[in-house]
């Protein structure tokens, strides 16, 4: 048996991972070959040294540092969420606001397109009537009632945009 072939089988020989015939062939070779015998001894000694290398231990504050990083990781994740959700929301709001402004502006520029007259619901504290006026300037007229100031009637002759919170209903336009 060639020496190199024997060396190639060193690990398998140590692990008893060879056939009986192969194992015996190596044993016979080792009995005859001093070079291979020494090589096997040196390999065995080296493996033993590797097995017995000094074991390192982590620093005493290892867990503490790790947990601190995890805590930081948690807050970083929270920030990510905090930034992500409003971004989506605000962009939605911005689009909605833009559309609303565009509608208001177009209505402002071209009031004749508004056919129905809107009047606030009578259940609201101030009774107001909004009627369509072809003039572009808004006119706020108050009809003075000498009997009671509380019954002042406000008439707005300018089509007004619909504000949130106002309850409006369609009324027939008086000629």
């Amino acid at each position: 048996m060639q020496c190199q072939l024997v060396l190639d089988k060193y690990t398998a020989y140590c692990d008893y991972d060879l056939t009986v015939t192969e194992h015996s062939a190596i044993e016979n070779h080792l009995m005859e070959c001093q070079g291979c015998r020494e090589a096997f001894e040196k390999l065995g000694s080296m493996v033993k040294k590797l097995n017995g290398l000094a074991e390192l231990q982590v620093s005493t504050d290892f867990n503490e540092r790790l947990l601190s990083k995890i805590a930081h990781l948690g807050s970083a994740e929270t920030h990510t969420v905090w930034y992500k959700i409003p971004t989506v929301r605000t962009s939605g709001y911005a689009i909605a606001a833009g559309v609303a402004l565009a509608l208001i502006f177009s209505q402002w520029m071209n009031p004749s397109t508004t056919n129905p007259t809107l009047q606030t619901n009578s259940s609201l504290p101030v009774a107001g009537e909004i009627s369509n006026n072809p003039t572009s300037q808004p006119v706020l007229a108050a009809t003075d009632d000498s009997t009671s100031n509380l019954n002042d009637t406000l008439k707005m002759t300018e089509p007004t945009p619909n504000f949130p919170g106002q309850q409006l209903r369609l009324v027939n336009q008086t000629p």
């Binding site: 060193y10 398998a12 692990d15 390999l43």
Partner: peptide
């Protein structure tokens, strides 16, 4: 794995 272990050991032995 087994063949690499053997070759690694021989290489280590050579280096040492």
């Amino acid at each position: 794995v087994k063949s690499r272990v053997n070759r690694a050991r021989l290489k280590m032995q050579d280096l040492l």
